[in-house]
């Protein structure tokens, strides 16, 4: 159960991969990682959800908290590859409309440039 599977800096933003479950136990791990990167000066993020199987309100809360922090730094956070049941959770919570969602990491990165 890994939240942050890997990361890599593309030219226009930090790409983070979340995998497995983003729940009350693992979401703080994601939040801490983002906070560390913000502290290091990172402001543009793309989060890849392709390997994420599960998300609860604790996961959404962590995403929202990190997004507010990133916006506070005039940064940007874009989400990619949200599908299936995870997408349903985004849709019913209204998070599908407050977060820009992209079909691929490449699409998110090119949007991040503009």
């Amino acid at each position: 159960m890994t939240v942050v599977g890997m990361e890599g800096r593309a030219s226009h933003g930090m790409v983070m991969t979340v995998a497995g479950r983003m729940d009350a136990v693992t979401a703080p791990e994601y939040e801490k990682k983002v906070n560390d990167l913000i502290a290091d000066g990172e402001t543009n993020f793309v989060v890849d959800f392709e390997q994420l199987d599960y998300i609860s309100s604790a996961g959404l809360r962590a995403l929202l908290a990190s997004a507010k922090k990133i916006k506070g730094k005039s940064g940007n956070i874009l989400l990619a590859n949200i599908r299936g049941s995870v997408k349903e959770v985004f849709d019913i919570s209204g998070f599908g409309t407050i977060f820009p969602m992209h079909d691929s990491v490449a699409s998110a990165l090119s949007a991040s440039v503009g």
């Binding site: 309100s57 929202l64 919570s93 407050i98 977060f99």
Partner: peptide, 22 residues
């Protein structure tokens, strides 16, 4: 209120909403 935007959205309150909706 699930219609608020990112800046006005409060952290929390979703748990019971998911219990009802899912």
């Amino acid at each position: 209120d699930v219609s608020l935007d990112i800046q006005n959205r409060e952290i929390g309150g979703l748990g019971v909403y998911f219990i009802r909706r899912l």
